[in-house]
Design a protein around this nucleic acid. Sequence first.
DNA 1: TATTGTTATACTCTATAACTATA
DNA 2: TATAGTTATAGAGTATAACAATA
Lengths: 140, 140
Amino acid sequence: MPATVTFRLGTLGALVTERFTAKLADLDLKPKHVGVLTVLAGGPPTSQQELAGLMGVAPSLIVSLADHLESIGAIARTRDPGDRRRMVLTLTPPGRKLLAKCAGLARDLDAELTGSLSADQRDQLAGALGHLAAENGLPT
Amino acid sequence: MPATVTFRLGTLGALVTERFTAKLADLDLKPKHVGVLTVLAGGPPTSQQELAGLMGVAPSLIVSLADHLESIGAIARTRDPGDRRRMVLTLTPPGRKLLAKCAGLARDLDAELTGSLSADQRDQLAGALGHLAAENGLPT
DNA sequence: TATTGTTATACTCTATAACTATA
DNA sequence: TATAGTTATAGAGTATAACAATA
């Protein structure tokens, strides 16, 4: 078992998520909040339903994630004039800065994790993970 | 964010765990049960407290995991004669067979995940993940 | 008194289902 | 009637705390 990619990605993923969660605590964010910010930064303004689909979570979860991000000024919620049922979410300038901070924390953790790898190994790891992410519909 | 190893390991880890969980459902197991079997297969018989320490979970969780594994005959629980407070867990022969089935499912998932990678890329990925796992005290 | 296993309880995360408003 | 968002409720997973047996 331990030699499988399945086992290694599962256990390392849990470890990394736990450590990233700890780093985010100061910013009053959880990993899923960062997921929302990341999706909003990567494309056009998005409705909550679209976001739920892209992230693979229930629409009701987007409500509470967006509630929090709106309360700290990281996103704006505006009603779509063309379809007043839809709430359009956009990243605010402070939200962009917040996301940049999160990315900085992620890079810090990257350095802690991969510090003992050679430059070649780091590149190979990033390349393979990027390939798997793209192939499975994860953000690029 | 998406380019960081942190983000990629976190999201891919969640994806892989979800898919592995689905494959395990037929065997009436969850990933943590496989974790217990894996630790028991990799070393000497182990007390529940030791197991909790090795897996990084609460001792009370080991109770329910071991209850289930014992009920399906995959492990045996015997009281340590030298210290009657301790329960020593050992993998039974059927437990070994069950673990082998789990490993087969993990290899199936490995093939699905890495099928589009070149042989070199697969080796590089496995090498880098193995390095990270070892460095962070995960099973090898 | 300290430790092992167990049980009781509570907390976090998230989904499902019911509800409101728009379409 | 169908859909977007919201709210209410429920379930899974796991930890913490209290407890029993043994040291």
